[in-house]
Structures are given as structure tokens and as C-alpha cells.
């Protein structure tokens, strides 16, 4: 059956990913970390837009909140990032809840809601740039320990450890999405995405369901932000809350296929690999090629919108004989 086939492919993919650090070199691992990190974020964003149909263009807000919550707690109190993740997730859920409340209670819809999310992200970026407790504009540097020793509790160690952490987080968010999609809430979200009036007429409390989507998406995104802080060790409000991050994490989901489970992962991998390739090219050719990555992203997005609105995944799923998979 199709479902068994999908599961088998998934297990195969997982095994390959588990073995990758043993086969590839450090460079490959670093690229894969980036792929998985972007896949994680794309999947978290997809909950809000792909499942529940609520467009957020300011998701870097939650990445940044998570990064700073986890980073600052560790910097000041030595708090393990795993606790930082809980705190960051809670803060992000709260902020997401405020944005959702404002948007959904006062009927701010579509583009205007998306603008609201950008406004919050930009506002918070400027706020953190002046927030001296987290380093202000001179940045927050997490203490680095000797790199030959892995400390999983404090997330200090070698790239391979970070690789397995982000692989685990990505697998977890995938499973969470899979479970929710088949649940009552998943049906509610997809109904709201397709037609909110009809959803409401069928007894769905659309306000509550949309709040759940925003808060869960925000919380999961913040967990990714904590990972980001500990992986990069350096936090600048300028980059943690960067608008381009909001855009990039959306692009992956759009290119792969919004609303699907595999689309965001596939899209994030494609986009990250392309970005890496273009960055390399730009380095080799030197000056004048700095913007080539952004141009590449722009072009691939144009191609997708022109040729395959629903993204790469749905068609690929059909090719692979996986139509049984919940691609809706």
C-alpha cells in the first residue's frame, strides 16, 4: 500500500541522514545542518500558513526570541538550552498569541495580517538592538568550550553533535505535524484554510483554532531559534530577527509545497543547497557576485509560481507513487 511505501522511504531517508556524518566530511555536515535547520523552520511556519492558512511574513521574530531567550539564559545563568527552549517557546507562544489576538479579534485579514507580523518582527529587532542585557547592538557571544568535547546537555561541542540535534528536532517536528494533520485540530485548520465561513458554520471555533496554529508555530520556531543561538554562538538582533530570514524560511515551504508534510523539507533542502552553490560561485568569482544568492532565490521562486503553484512535492509524490500520503 501507498502508506507502507511512504513509511519505508521515510525510514530509508532517516537511515541515510543518520549515517551522513560518518560518510561525509565536515563541510557536508555543515551544509546538512543548514538544510535541516531551514527544513525545521519551514515546517514550523507551514503549520500556520500551510495548514491553517494564516500568512506570517515575520517568523524571524520567533527565531530571534528563541535565540535570545536560550542564549541570554545560558550567558547569564548557565541555564541549559533545553530549558531555554521551553522558556523561548513559551515567550514566542505568548507573543504569537498577542499578534494572533490582535489580528483575529479585530478582523485583520490576509495581507494586513501579514503586515502586522512584519511590524512586530521589525519592532522587536530594533528593541533588541537596544536591549543591553542581551548585548545590545554589540551582540551576545556565548562562551565556547573546547571543541573536541561534546556536552549534549549544554549543547557545546562538535558539528556532528549539532547535526544530530537538529536532525532529532526536525524528525520531532515532522512527527508532530503528521499527528496533528490527522487529528481534529488538523481538520479544523485545513477547513479554515479552505473556507473560514464554511468552517465556522460547521461548528469550528475559528478564533481558537487559529490561535492554536499561531502559538504552536511560534513556539516550535523559537525552539529552532535556541538551536541557532548555540550553533552560531553569536547573536546580533540584526541577523537573528532579519527580514531575509523570514523570507527564506517561507521560500522553502512554497517551493516544496505548502500544506504538505514533505514539501517544506524538500523545499528547504533544495533552496539551501542552491544557496550554498551560489555562495560558492560568488566567492570564486569575487566582487560583483554578492547578490547572486538572492537573485537565484528570486528566479527559482518565479519558476515555481509560473510552473508549479502547488510546489515541487505534490507532483514528485505522485511520481513516487505516494499519492496516498496526506499531501493535502
Amino acid at each position: 500500500m501507498a502508506m507502507g511505501r511512504a513509511t519505508r522511504m521515510l525510514i530509508g531517508l532517516m537511515v541515510a541522514l543518520l549515517l551522513a556524518p560518518f560518510i561525509g566530511n565536515d563541510y557536508l555536515v555543515s551544509v546538512l545542518i543548514l538544510c535541516l535547520f531551514n527544513a525545521y523552520l519551514a515546517q514550523a511556519w507551514n503549520i500556520m500558513m500551510g495548514f491553517a492558512g494564516q500568512l506570517s511574513l515575520g517568523h524571524a521574530l520567533y527565531v530571534g526570541l528563541g535565540a535570545y531567550a536560550g542564549g541570554a539564559l545560558f550567558f547569564h545563568y548557565g541555564t541549559p538550552p533545553w530549558i531555554g527552549m521551553i522558556v523561548g517557546a513559551a515567550i514566542a507562544a505568548l507573543v504569537g498569541g498577542v499578534i494572533g489576538f490582535l489580528g483575529f479579534r479585530f478582523g485583520v485579514k490576509g495581507v494586513y495580517f501579514a503586515l502586522l507580523t512584519i511590524a512586530f518582527a521589525e519592532f522587536t529587532r530594533i528593541l533588541f538592538d537596544h536591549f543591553t542585557w542581551v548585548g545590545g547592538s554589540s551582540g551576545l557571544y556565548l562562551p565556547v568550550v573546547r571543541a573536541d568535547h561534546d556536552n549534549l546537555l549544554l549543547l557545546r561541542g562538535r558539528p556532528a553533535m549539532f547535526y544530530y540535534v537538529i536532525l532529532g528536532l526536525s524528525a520531532a517536528v515532522f512527527l508532530i505535524c503528521h499527528r496533528i494533520l490527522g487529528s481534529r485540530l488538523g481538520y479544523y485548520w485545513r477547513a479554515i484554510r479552505e473556507d473560514q465561513d464554511a468552517a465556522q458554520a460547521l461548528g469550528i471555533d475559528t478564533f481558537k483554532a487559529k490561535m492554536a496554529a499561531v502559538m504552536l508555530s511560534a513556539a516550535l520556531t523559537a525552539v529552532g531559534g535556541v538551536f541557532y543561538a548555540f550553533y552560531t554562538n553569536t547573536l546580533y538582533a540584526e541577523s537573528a530577527f532579519a527580514m531575509h530570514r523570514s523570507i527564506e524560511l517561507i521560500l522553502g515551504a512554497i517551493i516544496g509545497g505548502m500544506g504538505t508534510l514533505f514539501g517544506p523539507i524538500l523545499g528547504a533542502f533544495l533552496l539551501t543547497l542552491l544557496g550554498e552553490l551560489l555562495t560558492r560561485l560568488a566567492e570564486n568569482f569575487g566582487h560583483g557576485f554578492e547578490g547572486v544568492k538572492q537573485i537565484g532565490y528570486g528566479l527559482i521562486l518565479l519558476v515555481i509560481i509560473a510552473l508549479r503553484r502547488e510546489g515541487v512535492w505534490p507532483r514528485l509524490a505522485k511520481r513516487l507513487g505516494l499519492d496516498g500520503e496526506k499531501a493535502s
Partner: peptide, 24 residues
């Protein structure tokens, strides 16, 4: 209720449409 101007959940299957109703 039904809507005079029909409002199907276009991206969902017919069965999923009805499941949404049945969840109530």
C-alpha cells in the same frame, strides 16, 4: 446550514469535507 453560493473546502477530498462536518 448550507450556503446558496456553495463553499466547499476545495483542496480537501469530498470525504474530508464531510468529516469536518461530522467532527461537530
Amino acid at each position: 446550514r448550507t450556503f446558496q453560493i456553495v463553499k466547499p473546502f476545495g483542496g480537501l477530498t469530498v470525504r474530508e469535507n464531510v468529516i469536518v462536518g461530522a467532527l461537530a
